[in-house]
């Protein structure tokens, strides 16, 4: 019953990139940074233009029919036997963990399981499949890390972000209180239960500020949008950035991309 141990594939020639709708529409620079990091590792990145959304918003609201209908056409987008890399624990978790549930006993079950088994969270893939080595070229900076709950618990990558940041010589990763606690985003939760969500994001933001971080580096744009949006509205001194944008910026000298 324990989660099966992850078996990382050998570094492939090609990967599929599933951007997620949030990255596509709001944070494309984070997606581009991820693609460029992969390419720098010598991997050809395939970006299927037919991709839209992983279906999670509908699924987690209980609308499985709608979720399935959104996913079904996309099950055909990844025909080659290459890994599918996702710059979000949340959407990655949806694909890896929940597609097999959602399609169990349906004609799409095999396809869904095949896709699920090939799905990887991007930072996990960079560290544990590409064995990426990062050369820091930026100025000294203090950052905190927020690993999303799904990246942490569904994708099992809690250690990955800190290890990647640890490769950057000029980056000080500060320790926050209760790092594993949820930021309060939870997709539609933030809208259905806004007061509880606010209490959670307020605590998270204050913990990050108290830790002395200038920027919170996040695995997921959802959490980043939540935390940075709260900080901005409440004039707290904290910026948010997707971790792959941050890694790309630090190792290439390109500034400011993918910030929230």
């Amino acid at each position: 019953m324990t989660d099966p141990i992850k078996l990382y594939p050998a570094k492939p020639e090609k990967v599929y990139f599933f951007a997620t709708c949030l990255v596509d529409l709001f944070y494309p620079d984070a997606g581009m940074a991820g693609i460029q990091l992969l390419e720098r590792e010598g991997i050809e990145v395939l970006f299927p233009q037919g991709q839209t959304c992983c279906g999670q918003p509908a699924f987690s609201s209980g609308f499985n029919d709608q979720a399935r209908d959104v996913v079904i056409p996309q099950l055909e987008l990844f025909p080659g036997d290459y890994p599918i890399v996702v710059p979000a624990g949340s959407c990655g978790g949806m694909m890896r963990k929940h597609y097999p549930e959602l399609f169990a006993g349906t004609p799409w079950q095999d396809k869904a399981e095949n896709l699920a088994a090939r799905t990887w969270e991007l930072t996990d893939f960079l560290l544990n499949v590409c064995h990426i080595r990062l050369e820091d070229q930026g100025e000294p900076v203090k950052v905190a890390m927020h690993t999303s709950c799904s990246a942490r618990r569904e994708m099992g990558v809690a250690e990955v972000g800190p290890r990647l940041l640890g490769q950057l010589g000029q980056v000080e990763l500060v320790e926050q209180a209760r790092p594993a606690e949820c930021c309060g985003f939870g997709g539609t939760f933030a809208v259905r239960h806004p007061e509880i969500s606010e209490a959670m994001v307020a605590d998270k933001t204050e913990a990050l500020v108290a830790a002395g971080a200038e920027t919170v580096v996040a695995t997921d744009c959802g959490c980043m949008m939540n935390i940075a949006g709260y900080a901005e509205k409440n004039r707290r001194p904290l910026k948010g950035q997707h971790i792959v944008s941050f890694l790309w910026e630090r190792t290439c000298g390109h500034g400011g991309e993918g910030k929230a």
Binding site: C149, R153, E181, C182, G186, G187, F189, R192, S197, M200
Partner: peptide, 8 residues
């Protein structure tokens, strides 16, 4: 619905 499904 009163859960972020954080999984803790």
């Amino acid at each position: 619905s009163a859960s972020t499904l954080c999984g803790a």
